[in-house]
Amino acid sequence: MSALASLTMRELKKWYRRRIAIIFTFITPLFWLALFGKSMNLYSLLKIPSNVPPQFVQFVQQAIDQIIIAAFGTKDYFTFLATGMFSVFILFSSMFSGMSLIFDRRLGYLSRLLVAPIRRETIFLSRVISSIIRSLLQFTALLIIAIALGLQLGDGFNIIHLASLYATLALLALAFSTLFIALSLKIEEHDTAIAITNLLNLPLMFASNSIFPKNQMPQWLQIIADINPLTHSNIIIRKLVIEASLDIPIKSLAYLLGIAILTTILGLYLSRKLLKHL
């Protein structure tokens, strides 16, 4: 096996052996899905009041439907939220991808890797690849849970949509994991990494269209949401899942791709530079 494959396997083996820890990865997104997504039932909040004359019930109902669909793309808020949580979940699971590098530095394993005749980028890439694999496997579990909780797939959702969904999330995972691993290249204490993570996770989630649609946000927040990669992956994912359409906005796809390429190049460059010596 090549050094890259073995080092990737090492990460995955260690992850697999920490089964308890895996459960915790699901807790936050599950809370959002089950508690927030299920309790925030917009459709029943907007039930037609009993004093509406019967001859208007149909029109009012249509108006409500159209308002909700215009805002969320679906009548079911849970489906909107669940599809938004997919990207957030990838963010959360990628955020800690740099942690193993920090521990390797602390425990001395990194020295072992640095004296070995391997490319410095290999050390970096093994974490990126394992992080993406990990994220996608965990996502599969989340997808099943979401469907069980009532996620409504668009009519005509097929294997191509599913594959595109995975590809989009893989791209997002690549962008986030390269970024967070690059940040961890020279960090010594895991507290620092956790602090950075905590500083970024909720703001990134709220400043996107994950929980609420973007167009009802104030102008300044829309600007932030527009540069947030989560917004763009959500746009693509909702197109694929809710509408079962392959008509993906090129702008969002190009943006995601651009970010992923940029962070990957940055990570490769920094690993080459910073992992030269201890």
């Binding site: 050094a3 494959a5 073995s6 080092l7 090492r10 072992r112 890797l113 070995a116 391997i118």
Partner: peptide, 11 residues
């Protein structure tokens, strides 16, 4: 596993 991993680092 440690040994085999180490071996793969050295080809």
């Amino acid at each position: 596993e440690n040994i085999m991993l180490q071996a793969s680092l050295y080809g």
